[in-house]
């Protein structure tokens, strides 16, 4: 579970990138985090993962305060950043061993977990190679495997589909669903509204640092036309703010 309460963040003490947001991602659900460029998505995700400290408010990940109890909070989530360029000079297998050691995964179960994830995402043949030789999509797959090696209860994914081939993207969506169905939590940002519409239990739309809408697609439609798509709802909300 992720719980965000009254969180604000400003970069220059003038403009608030995130302004007093509240958001709860419950166990067993996938929540999509949508918003135009510069809306506050990445800042929010950075605060949830401990990269940035909020100016105000609290964030709980699996019940652990990310500011007061960072190690336990970090141990409970797996994070896939939007930039998969991590340690290019390590071999993929070395990176995964690093993640296994850091997250204190029992060495006896690593091999099986990595094999399964690599097979699902189509990265088995490249595990012995340097990350430097990987394409963007392959790096993304590796980061996903690394983030899930400790089987975290909470998945936080920033634009996870970017660069993935159709098969891997499909597989990831299936994995997200399986994870949520197992009573765990998935929170991800995306610009691909079709993906959000298909797999999210709820969506949160952020703009200018404020959550503009939060709910299931049915709940959102209740404020718009009955046959409105997520895309039309999103555009209406964002244009409203710009006009």
């Amino acid at each position: 579970m992720i719980e965000i309460r009254g969180v604000s963040k400003s970069y220059n003490s003038k403009i608030k990138a995130v302004d007093g947001i509240d958001l709860k991602v419950n166990p067993g659900e996938i929540v999509g985090f949508l918003g135009p460029n510069g809306a506050g998505k990445t800042t929010t995700i950075k605060m949830i993962t401990g990269i940035l400290d909020p100016d105000q408010g609290t964030i709980l990940v699996n019940g652990h305060d990310i500011v007061r109890d960072p190690i336990l909070a970090k141990q409970s989530f797996g994070f896939v950043p939007d930039d998969p360029n991590i340690f290019p000079r390590l071999k993929a297998i070395e990176y995964l061993r690093f993640m296994g050691d850091i997250y204190q995964v029992d060495p006896a179960v690593r091999s099986e977990r990595v094999s399964k994830l690599a097979a699902r995402l189509g990265l088995t043949e490249a595990l012995g190679d340097r990350i430097q030789s990987f394409s963007h999509g392959m790096r993304q797959k590796l980061i996903i495997i690394g983030a899930l090696i400790h089987q975290p209860a909470v998945w936080i994914l920033d634009e996870p589909m970017t660069g993935l081939d159709p098969k891997a993207a499909f597989e990831l969506k299936v994995m997200m669903r399986e994870h949520a169905d197992a009573g765990k939590t998935v929170f991800f940002s995306t610009h691909v509204l079709d993906v959000a519409e298909k797999i999210c239990d709820r969506v949160a739309i952020i703009d200018h640092g404020h959550i503009r809408a939060l709910g299931t697609l049915t709940e959102l439609r209740s404020h718009f036309a009955a046959d409105a798509t997520l895309e039309s709802i999103f555009l209406d909300l964002v244009e409203d703010q710009q006009s």
Binding site: I93, E94, L96, R97, G100, D101, P107, R110, S111, V114, S115, L127, G128
Partner: peptide
């Protein structure tokens, strides 16, 4: 090899 190299 996978098991050995992931062994910690």
């Amino acid at each position: 090899a996978l098991g050995q190299q992931l062994g910690g």
